[in-house]
Design a protein around this nucleic acid. Sequence first.
DNA 1: TTGTAGGCGTTATCAG
DNA 2: CTGATAACGCCTACAA
Lengths: 312, 312
Amino acid sequence: VSRVVNGVTSVDQTIRQAVEHAISTTGYQPNLAARSLVTRRANAIALVLPKENQVLVDPFFGRVVAGMMSVLASTNVHLVLVKIGPGTRDRIIADLGGGRLDGAIIVHTDQNDPLPGRLTDGRLPVVLWGPPPRPMSINYVDVNQTAGAALAAQHLVALGCRRIATITGPLDTPAGRHRLAGFRAAMSELGHGDVAWTEGAFTRESGTAAMERLIADHPDVDGVFIASDLMAQGAIPVLRRQRRTIPDDIALVGFDDSSAALDCDPPLTTVRQPVEDMAAEMARQLLRQIDNPATPITTVIFEPTLVIRQSA
Amino acid sequence: VSRVVNGVTSVDQTIRQAVEHAISTTGYQPNLAARSLVTRRANAIALVLPKENQVLVDPFFGRVVAGMMSVLASTNVHLVLVKIGPGTRDRIIADLGGGRLDGAIIVHTDQNDPLPGRLTDGRLPVVLWGPPPRPMSINYVDVNQTAGAALAAQHLVALGCRRIATITGPLDTPAGRHRLAGFRAAMSELGHGDVAWTEGAFTRESGTAAMERLIADHPDVDGVFIASDLMAQGAIPVLRRQRRTIPDDIALVGFDDSSAALDCDPPLTTVRQPVEDMAAEMARQLLRQIDNPATPITTVIFEPTLVIRQSA
DNA sequence: TTGTAGGCGTTATCAG
DNA sequence: CTGATAACGCCTACAA
């Protein structure tokens, strides 16, 4: 019976048909837990999200999930969603160690979350979005943040903007820091020495507040690189209230190419991060690692591209 | 050992400590698959999403997931995400029958998806978002759509709008139909007999297109009930391009109170659907059904409220 | 190609 | 309160 169920070819036709007939008449269904027990595979991986509540409404995570599902769809590996919270770290480790989960993908844990370290120490298959906070041997994928920021800088300068500023992401995250550093480096290379900047938190509200600060401190800016589309979306109404037209009075370049970029009015010119591809790669990497624990640790860096719309 | 691990109280202290010591020195972790095999519980439920790609970026789903997670957090039940696709229906049924999943929550399957029917026929625990397309005995939660639409109607009329119209949801969905019916009924009760309407698809793009049609056909409208916030968000730029001010020239009321309502400029007045509460209730209902299969089928209807912001 | 025994790691039952 | 033992349902050698 087992051989028929699992499609082993070396089974006589008559007996196979007999078994299949029995299966369909009795409505037999293999017990997956029993199978899991002997194969030592849960066929399930976790997607670990940061504890912030907002995250689930952030279109970014939707794209990550979509990218992962696209590769999981052809397998029968379950995607289980976990949000960091009190006790969840221990639970994840128990699930992984107890064979209820085969691996985990972690997105945006903060600075000194112990989870990635504990997982790698336990030799459990993990892939991170973005570099680990503290250097360690761990799989991750990332976008070339520096190159992305440079793309924005070049575009604003080419447009003829003279007073260029940037609204950064949170500077306690690698992404926030790298985008700022990359932008400044590119700007100074283009002959624009000092760049005004103010810090945001990647959220819409923080974008609104940051733009208000920026305009108050530097009323003459005519070009801004905003380190996330969501912040740009929050910033645009501020400019509208000031009756500054986009892109004529002030040009805006975002980062991500999330769905928010298209929801902006005018549609946002932005640095595209291939989120779905990156998430798909994470899933593949994780499955590979699960399949063969000897797979060497790897990091994959994706190149961003500039998507030109109407805000710059 | 089993008794210690599972916290049975009637265990001698000395032996308990011996076991606990052994556990911590060896780093023993119980195998969850073996446990699952004998307890016949997977401790996992599925959230089944429609096949449309957009869904994962729709803030609505983020709220559903958040609501479910809030009740699952205190259990050790996994939430597995599944998107309808070729073959997934069979896979879900196999997982449920095979004891790898204990139940399922289904959101927005289309008109004649066979899945809900197949699941209830198999006596598997299911809860639906919204009423089943064809009448059948199945758990579901919903919002009082009719009352919600009436709230919008009353508000627009109270505001003094004279030419009131509505952009509906897709009329092949219960939500789309009920909101339109409720709106018309309330309007005629308020002495506004004929209401112009045009059909949308609940998406931003469809909102843009619908508003363009509406303005072209009825240039004199001064109040619109838009059956989803996302459509309202898509509609606003159309009015801005026409230099119609909101709410003075034209008042807008949305539906959902999703995050999109706050992202509108001006912030959207909208009918609030308590999505998180509803999703939490679905999870509780499902868990109850799993715990005790004899639990009677129930449907829970939530009351909407009007959230007044600046668009009306 | 087919039958069979053994084992995967728990929980649960039943004497003691 | 404790120890032993039979399931739970499947896969996989191994031998025939």
